[in-house]
Design a protein around this nucleic acid. Structure first.
Length: 359
DNA sequence: TCTGGGGTCCTAGGACCC
DNA sequence: TCTGGGGTCCTAGGACCC
């Protein structure tokens, strides 16, 4: 090995994670189109969580209604979501990452994490990670190498599947410059459209635009944030301090819309009980409540209220019922969401850079 | 075709206080 | 009598991510 050791950010992303976990315990599914979502019933209101590469060839992708997915890939195997199985597999993967020499690991979700390292040969380190994960979990992953978190995260996409790709300040513009802004992590369809209205279509155009244009359109923070994204700049340090949740929530889409007030109240109570169990498990008080109501596709309302810090179920239920009265009694309810916000423990957020998307 | 469920963060506007 | 500006809190809504 030659050259001096330097700091690198690696982004590890499991390939078709959920589908891969399912295939592991059902080897006969290997090579077949597999779709995981909801309760695995295409007649229900549910969406695709993950599709295997074979299913993606039929045009099936995450977020697609299960019903549509089943029509596009009629021979696909449909499976229900089994969260505990994925959590268990994820924990084995993350433990493997933490066991790598001098690795700082920041978990982003079930199937991805940043790994901070110092090495003279990040590609070799990335290959070692892939080998270790495969050996211990039988799962394949792709690894992005970057000099910032954003670049490492985006790099992974170019390595998929089972590959390694390096994206740094050096090759950022040649790799990303001509791509549409939507390819950036944190720029979705809405923002890319608003950018396009200002003539900003590509990543390089975003990188070079006058900041005044962006702050006028998106506000002081987001404006600067988007330009930084266009340059691939940002945090360079992987932060492994344990995550502190801001709140917990439960959401349910009813298979048949609710019209009866008593049904709605009962549903809220049931969800609230589960949410409060989560909160109590953390031994932190509730400081806010929220209710999300979907009356029809695309018609969503939210109601929120601050509450005096409490863990008393009865008073929280009373506050929640006050929000329930805001639900339009003349409209059927398709989805209900209940959220409880929790007080932040003192010093939990000190020194943590506020960013979007959880990094 | 008519869209899950779990999160995070930002912005706008009104109320209220000094 | 009329009008200011700054700050904070609250609610609602929007956008994005996995």
């Amino acid at each position: 090995m030659s050259g001096d050791a330097a700091s690198w950010v690696l982004h590890v992303d499991l390939d078709q994670f959920i589908a891969a976990v399912e295939v592991l315990r059902r080897p006969e599914l290997a090579g077949k189109p597999v779709i995981v979502g909801g309760r695995g019933d295409p007649a229900e209101r549910a969406v695709v969580s993950t599709a295997s590469y074979e299913a993606r060839a039929f045009g099936v992708g995450s977020g697609m209604p299960l019903r549509i997915a089943a029509r596009k890939a009629p021979d696909a195997v449909l499976l229900p979501v089994d969260a505990p199985a994925y959590t268990a597999a994820s924990e084995r993967v993350m433990a493997t990452l933490r066991a790598q020499p001098d690795a700082t690991v920041q978990v982003l979700g079930w199937d991805e994490a940043f790994v901070g390292i110092e090495t003279a040969d990040p590609e070799a380190y990335a290959r070692a990670i892939q080998a270790a994960v495969l050996e211990r979990t039988l799962l394949h992953c792709s690894v992005g190498i970057g000099d910032t978190l954003v670049r490492a995260k985006i790099a992974t996409g170019f390595g998929k599947p089972r590959g390694v790709f390096r994206l740094t300040a050096e090759n950022w513009s040649s790799v990303m410059g001509d791509l549409p802004t939507k390819e950036l992590w944190g720029v979705g369809s809405k923002v890319s459209r608003r950018l396009a209205a200002h003539g900003i279509v590509t990543v390089s155009q975003l990188a070079d635009v006058d900041t005044d244009v962006l702050t006028a359109e998106f506000g002081p923070k987001m404006g600067l944030w988007y330009r930084q994204l266009g340059r691939g700049d940002g945090a360079t340090t992987v932060d492994d301090t344990p995550w502190v949740a801001r709140g917990h929530s439960r959401e349910t889409t009813f298979q048949v819309d609710l019209v009866d007030r008593a049904d709605i109240e009962n549903a809220v109570r049931a969800m609230l009980d589960q949410v409060l169990d989560d909160v109590v498990a953390e031994q932190r008080p509730v400081v806010g409540l929220g209710l999300k109501v979907r009356y029809a596709p695309f018609v969503t309302k939210t109601f929120t209220r601050r509450v005096a810090a409490t863990n008393d179920r009865e008073s929280v239920v009373a506050e929640a019922m006050a929000l329930v009265t805001k639900i339009d009694p003349d409209r059927a309810v398709r989805l209900l969401g209940v959220r409880a916000e929790m007080a932040m423990p003192d010093d939990a957020r000190e020194g943590h850079t506020p960013t979007r998307g959880g990094w």
